[in-house]
Design a protein around this nucleic acid. Structure first.
Lengths: 194, 194
DNA sequence: GGCTACCGATCGATCGATCGATCGGGCATC
DNA sequence: GATGCCCGATCGATCGATCGATCGGTAGCC
C-alpha cells in the first residue's frame, strides 16, 4: 500500500480542480466553487496557482506526460511484435483511463477551452502519443500481421474506443480492471484482424 | 437539388447556436456571441428562443430524435440478420456523425450542462438509442453469429468508436462518406467476430 | 523582522435576461 | 385612396448576479 501522506494544500487545489473540471467542465466551474472544494477562499487560491487556465494546463500536462512516458516505454522494447505492442498499448491506455477517468476526461474534453498558446503545447503532446499508436499499427500492417485498409482510421477508431472507458467504468461494476483490459485488448486485435 | 429557401430568423439562431456550442461549448458561448453570429441584438434573440438552456435542449432533442427514428426503422425490419442490422446501424451512425458533426458533438459533450430536469429527457432519448444497439448485439450473441464475452462492453466500444468520426472526418479528406461507412462497418463486424 | 499562509473586500468585465420603446408593413374602416 | 390601428420584429439600455483576478492586510511561525 502507498503511505497515506497528508496532501499539501497545492495538491488539494489540484485535486479539487480535477474533479470539478471533469464534472462540470472548465467554463462551468467558477473559482469560488474551486476554492470551496479546496477549503480555501478564492483569494487564497491564487497563492497556490497562477491563472485558472494555467491550472487546467498543468492538469493536462501531467496526465498527458504520464501517458506519453508509458507509451514510449512500451514502444521502446524491441522484443515486442506489433501485435504484442498493440495489446500492451491498449491495456495501458484502458487501465489509465479506467483508473483516472477524471484526468482523461479533462484532457479529452477541454482542449477547446485553452488559449492558442497553451493549446499548442497540449496538442503536441497528444500528437506524440497518438503517433506511437500509429507507428505500431503501421508496423503491423507492413509486416502483414494486421489487415486494415486505412491505418489512420484504425488508429482513430481504436483510440476513441479505448478512451470511452473513462466515461462509464466504475470499480464497483461487474468487470474488474484486469478483465476490462483483457477484453479491450481482444476487441482491438480482432478490429485490426491480427 | 433542394431548393435554396431563405432560412427564417429562428433557423439562423438555431444554426448559430449549433456551431458555437460545438466549437466553444455551451458555457463557453455567451448570448452576445450568439446574437452576433445570428445577426441580431442580444435582446432580439429572446424573441426567437426561450432561455439559453432551452435552445440547447431543442438542439439535442432534434438531433437525438432523428437518430432514434433512423435506428428504430432499421431495427423494425424483421428480414435482417443481426449482422446485417449491426452493419446498417454502424453505417447510419457513422454517416450521421460525419455529416452533422456539430450536432453530435453537442449531444455528446454538453449533457452535463443541462439542468436535472432537461437531462432526464435527453438521457432517456440517448438510452433508447443505445438500447437498439444493445438488442442487436444481444441477438447476434444469442444466435451464435457474434462472439463477444461482454455484450454491454462491445456496445460501448462500438458506439464510442463510431461517434469519434464526428471529431475528425472532413468531406475534403482522403476518405469519402461511403468509404468511411464501409470501413467502420468492416471494423465493427470484426470487433464482434461475426 | 521576514516569511508563508490565508482572507475580506473589491475591482472591472461579463454573464443571462428583461425593460420600455421604436419602426414598418398589413389590414380594416371610412 | 387615405386614415388609424395593430403587431411582429428589433434594439439600446440596463438589471442583478457572477465572473476571474487583485488589493491591502492579518495571524502565526522561524
Amino acid at each position: 500500500m502507498a503511505e497515506a501522506v497528508a496532501p499539501t494544500t497545492a495538491e488539494r487545489v489540484r485535486a479539487a480542480a480535477l474533479s470539478l473540471f471533469a464534472e462540470r467542465g472548465y467554463h462551468g466551474t467558477g473559482i469560488r466553487q474551486l476554492a470551496d472544494a479546496a477549503g480555501l477562499s478564492s483569494a487564497s487560491l491564487y497563492h497556490y496557482m497562477g491563472t485558472k487556465e494555467e491550472l487546467l494546463v498543468a492538469i493536462m500536462r501531467t496526465s498527458l506526460t504520464r501517458l506519453v512516458d508509458a507509451g514510449e516505454e512500451i514502444c521502446a522494447d524491441p522484443a515486442l511484435t506489433a501485435r504484442e505492442r498493440l495489446v500492451a498499448l491498449v491495456e495501458m491506455h484502458v487501465r489509465t483511463h479506467a483508473r483516472s477517468p477524471e484526468e482523461t476526461r479533462v484532457v479529452d474534453d477541454e482542449v477547446r477551452a485553452l488559449s492558442a498558446t497553451s493549446r499548442g503545447e497540449i496538442v503536441a503532446l497528444r500528437d506524440r502519443y497518438e503517433d506511437l499508436w500509429q507507428a505500431t499499427i503501421d508496423e503491423g500492417v507492413r509486416s502483414g500481421s494486421f489487415r486494415v485498409e486505412t491505418p489512420a482510421l484504425a488508429r482513430r477508431a481504436l483510440l476513441e474506443m479505448c478512451s470511452g472507458v473513462a466515461r462509464w467504468w466504475v470499480p464497483s461494476g461487474p468487470l474488474s480492471l484486469d478483465e476490462l483490459a483483457d477484453e479491450y485488448a481482444t476487441m482491438a486485435v480482432h478490429l485490426v484482424r491480427a
